[in-house]
Amino acid sequence: MVDAVTPALPNGPGVGYKAQHFNDILAAPGAVTWLEIHAENYMGDGGRPLAQLRHLAERFAISVHGVGLSIGGEGPLDAAHLARLKHLCDWLRPASFSEHLAWSTHDGAYLNDLLPLPYTPATVARVADHVDHVQSVLGRRMLLENPSSYLAFAGAEMAEVEFLREVAARTGCGLLLDVNNVFVSAANLDFDAAAYLADFPLDLVGEIHLGGHFVDADDHGAALLIDHHGAAVVDPVWALYADVIAKAGARPTLIEWDNDVPDWPELVAEAARAAAILVPA
């Protein structure tokens, strides 16, 4: 299912595209070598968002990151939504398409959040079916992203890495490794992030995400980290990332900053920090 025609993302830093940075990106891209967009924001019929995207795609490799497919959902994928996604990928010819191991729809209502699923043989089969469906409609290999978790399922039968490895083995999909999500989930579910990463099939990783999180507490006063993409990447996440790159080699790496979005130079500085790890001086 590998599409030989589509160029891959560069093995350098990228950033999540925000419309307020449009002019800055073109004038002073700095270390930024590629851009990621949220698919759903470019499913309108026309206007400025699509015009700007067409313009950026002439200069930068683009990664399309879906947030609304609900790949972990119980029912079949939404055919109309998948058709809109195919339309976007067909005209844009992005370097990569990725989605989340999560669900977001129920009884036709869309909840606009990435919700967790229990890891069991039954859910592996369901997610693998959905990934197969997406890949066959789009005619390309997709990347599946590990989620950030705030709670666990009493009925879980598999570890997350085992689950992702199994879905990838059944479908041929690649993986998007969000190192901040690993850090957040490890703190929230009391496991060792380094051990998780040591077990992660790095050969399948086509993209890495780095983002910021927010520190809260649960009912018992235990730390509760919330993945809000609204701050700089913290030092322990940079350290985990450096370990991953040392072991896996350079990979396309996204700075994900979606809320309280900083001015362009601050975002470029985060990208430069990733660049320094990707290509040590």
Binding site: P118, Y150, L151, A152, F153, G155, N188, L189, D218, H220
Partner: peptide
Amino acid sequence: GLVDARGQPAG
């Protein structure tokens, strides 16, 4: 069925 790391209700 939603719990924290110690198996307590997720709250």
